[in-house]
Design a protein around this nucleic acid. Structure first.
Lengths: 337, 337
DNA sequence: ATAATGGTGTGAAACCTTTCACGAAATATA
DNA sequence: TATATTTCGTGAAAGGTTTCACACCATTAT
């Protein structure tokens, strides 16, 4: 005499309810079935504590209601909120989210994709900077922030527009001598366009601009110090407007300048990029160009789950906005919102 | 005439290699097989681009190599690094991680668990504060930071010890009038012990201590301002040591005090809790008790994947450490590490 | 030379669903 | 009342794997 330890199956429910297997299946798939049958099945399922086995179902239907998100890292606040938004957007559609963090390692990225193929995810959302990524044509893939090719849809913030917006904002706030600071590994992706946008807008207004790109892996924030010292030591004030390609960079630049006795935003105004507020205080770390993270997530998921995968946009740019966060002089030239 | 659009199966490989189905299975499961057979199978698989279908395998074996992590939120830095560490720990064991964020909503938490049961995850790691959570006895569950009952293993930082450590550190740095500030929703979990530890250590040394708990959902950091004003306005310096139950609280307290003209750490020293460094700069936001996040993750995964689930510890406390982060006067009384 | 033994490839059964052709019952039509 | 039509429950087949009893062949022992 053995106790049945494994969870009940449809067959058990069918037996308990005194109906056929197919009938039970119909009940759990919302296929019309006589009221009396439906009730018998539901009661039996309740008594037995039956739950659908999604693995068996997936095997049969080739649908797993699982999507994967590939990130270089989740510790970074921007990726963290993105992960959360994607997770929520997926759940609204009854999807689960598999999270892979790769550390930007191409090998890890490729290995993740293999795993997903084997595990039959329904689609992949990738923030991945590996140019030679191979993914099964049949497996829906949406890239965020990184354009691969016309055949793989990419959704991104309007980085170029964001760069322009930063320039225009600084100009309207009175800045006339600009600097653009960039940190992070060089990316062929969309992110780099924020620099181009800024440069273009400055050029269009004949505003002098100096650019410092520290875009090798090993650079850290500290490496910007010499540059700042050069331009701000001894009462020098070579710039009155600085655009940083990242909020964290912007914050650190502010701190370093403060150390050097430069007053922000009185003497220099700084705008960053990302716009992810500090979680507990809800405050922005600095004045910034805000990425529409929630829409980024929502849109990616929409495209990913789109049934008709012909004629999908190959690049979708979402509008960014400006938000004051203490490193600009709001309300002096205009009463900023 | 139809093109075979679906991916190749073991049967295809078997046919291509001219061997039996079982042989192919053995090859892919590392079960010894004649060298010539192995080669034929591997070549055939390579030619066909065969990949194991984990859904079919999972159906048969009841093993999915998938674990789920339930978090209230990922936007919070502590949860973000925890998610990342768990993800990596799991991958080291060839497991995938399903991420669920619940917003601490008990209903969402319960729904997540149902989903997981249906999707046959091999185990669940939960940071969940829902006391009445129901989870299938047969499904391994490990709780982080929250003790449920002897039957569900909990791993946590040594919060009590951390509180004591904070007190001892502040005392050894010269503080004699303490305050303990607490924010966040009240938790029956382990986290609250950090306060108890601090109080106990202060009491043991006869150090006067004032405590402010703002532990209802709707309180924000700003709500500490009146308290600080009361004790620090007009040159008053009622405390010289403050322990905050969170780094972010500590930072904000520091900022608020600075606004009021209180010099930190000269006049007041502050210690927080968590020790998650700012991602880009790598710097701690403040002096703090550091949680061993990586070990927390590693340990949880270890326990979760432990085959023999009898006699598992019901509570596992991991040692915390102190780290200076600018809100304490290191090197005056001792040359802190 | 024959029997016993061990190693190893084979293929059917089972895992739990969904799907679909089938047939029975109920309803509608003449 | 008899036939045509619709409705709906039934149960077998299929989906891709693992597992296991079995058969086969080659050793080794007698």
């Amino acid at each position: 005499m053995k106790v049945k330890s494994t969870s009940p199956t449809m067959k058990d429910v069918a037996r308990e309810a005194g109906v056929a297997l197919g009938t039970v299946s119909k009940v759990f798939n919302g296929i019309p079935v006589g009221e009396s049958y439906r009730q018998r099945v539901e009661e039996a399922a309740g008594r037995l504590g039956y739950q659908v086995n999604q693995y068996a179902r997936g095997l049969k239907t080739n649908k797993t209601y699982t999507a994967a998100l590939i990130l270089p890292v989740v510790e970074h606040p921007y990726f963290a909120v993105l992960a959360q938004q994607v997770c929520m957007a997926l759940r609204r559609r009854n999807y689960r989210m598999l999270l892979y963090v790769t550390g930007s390692d191409p090998e890890a990225e490729q290995q993740c994709i293999r795993m997903m193929e084997q595990h039959k995810v329904d689609g992949i959302i990738g923030l991945t900077y590996n140019p030679g990524l191979e993914v099964d044509e049949a497996l829906p893939f949406v890239s965020i922030d990184r354009y691969f090719s016309p055949s793989v849809p990419c959704v991104a913030s309007d980085n170029f527009g964001g760069g322009q917006l930063a320039a225009e904002k600084l100009i309207s706030l009175g800045c006339r001598r600009m600097a653009f600071l960039r940190i992070g590994s060089p990316q062929t992706g969309e992110v780099d366009k924020r620099g181009s946008g800024f440069e273009q807008a400055c050029a269009a207004r004949d505003i002098p601009l100096e650019t410092l790109r520290l875009d090798d892996e090993e650079y850290t924030i500290e490496d910007f110090r010499p540059f700042l010292l050069e331009h701000f030591s001894g009462g020098k004030r070579d710039f009155d407007g600085i655009f940083c390609n990242t909020d964290s960079l912007a914050c650190h630049v502010r701190d370093m300048l403060a150390e050097m006795g430069v007053r922000v935003p009185e003497e220099v105004q700084i705008i960053g990029f990302d716009g992810v507020p500090d979680y507990l205080s809800g405050r922005l770390p600095c004045s910034t160009i805000v990425q529409p993270v929630a829409q980024l997530a929502e849109t990616s998921v929409n495209i990913l789950l789109e049934k008709d995968r012909t004629g999908l946009p190959s690049l979708l740019c979402l509008p960014v906005s400006y938000a004051a966060g203490g490193t600009t002089r709001e309300g002096e030239f205009s009463h900023g919102e």
